[in-house]
């Protein structure tokens, strides 16, 4: 990252927030507002200890696998809906219904439906992320310029050429938006799913910290998740910038 791109205002805001927390921790019991050094020690323990790190990595793997599969199925479904109105007429109400069900309800349903913990968590991530990918892909497909479609058709491309040369590049920006939205949502949903019945994962560790009334540890685990989401957002942003490097950059 170049010096120019460092967000000094953002860093300052973060430092102010930390200073306020530390100030409050001095005048309140430590089980309510633990001092930063206590959280820092627990965070270091999580990252440096093989066993705890495995919990963090398991949760991240669950989120990423769930998201990648939701992305593949959801995007394909969205494109088919865009191409075939009859399929859209059938699938859209189902997806809208699924999207309307609260994530917590899906957790309860999944606990009853699936005994296997991994399957349960995977199902919850899939069912909550898939509609968003589908709708984004659908909207994006429908928004492809008629002018550009006609231009391509003059050359008589095959379906795969049409997809590679026009459709895929047209929908990429919206798919990145869907990824960014779903990343945060799926992280929250995965943790809730892990709270119920999982014996490995950040959700399970948060549940343990709660039962031990260990707020520094709960906050340290929370920070692990926040760092994961931020790192993933940066990775997505880099990937997006490299794929969409053709876009004009606004000067203001």
């Amino acid at each position: 990252m170049s010096i120019k791109k460092i967000n000094y205002k953002g860093i300052l805001a973060g430092l102010v927030l930390l200073a306020i927390w530390q100030g409050v921790s001095l005048v309140t019991p430590s089980y309510l507002f633990p001092p930063l050094q206590e959280i820092g020690v627990d965070l270091f323990y999580i990252i440096s200890n093989g066993e705890t790190l495995q919990h963090a990595l398991t949760t991240m793997a669950r989120i990423l696998v769930g998201l990648v599969i939701s992305f593949l199925i959801g995007t394909l479904l969205g494109l088919i809906m865009g191409m075939e109105d009859s399929i859209n007429d059938i699938v859209r109400p189902v997806l809208s219904f699924i999207q309307g069900v609260p994530a917590l309800s899906w957790v309860v349903i999944a606990v009853i439906w699936f005994q296997q913990v991994e399957l349960r968590i995977f199902f919850i991530i899939l069912i909550t992320a898939l509609p968003n990918f589908s709708f984004q892909a659908f909207d994006s497909y429908k928004a492809i310029s008629k002018d550009l479609r006609e231009m391509m058709l003059v050359f008589r491309p095959r379906s795969n050429q049409m997809f590679r040369m026009l459709i895929f590049p047209s929908i990429i920006p919206d798919l990145f938006t869907a990824w960014k939205v779903n990343l945060g949502n799926s992280t929250r949903v995965a943790i809730v799913a892990e709270l119920v019945g999982a014996t490995v994962g950040v959700g399970y560790q948060l549940s343990s910290a709660q039962s031990l009334f260990d707020l520094p540890m709960a906050l340290a685990w929370t920070l692990v998740l926040v760092i994961f989401v931020i790192v993933m957002q940066i990775v997505l942003g880099r990937f997006e910038n490299s794929l969409l490097s053709w876009r004009p950059k606004a000067e203001r």
Binding site: E150, M151, P157, M165, L166, P169, W246
Partner: peptide, 23 residues
């Protein structure tokens, strides 16, 4: 066409070569 209808993610050369790529 009336408007250029170039694909914005392709360079001038890649745009000029669209038909050849399809062929």
């Amino acid at each position: 066409f009336q408007n250029d209808r170039l694909l914005p993610w392709r360079t001038a050369l890649e745009n000029a070569a669209i038909g050849l790529e399809v062929n």
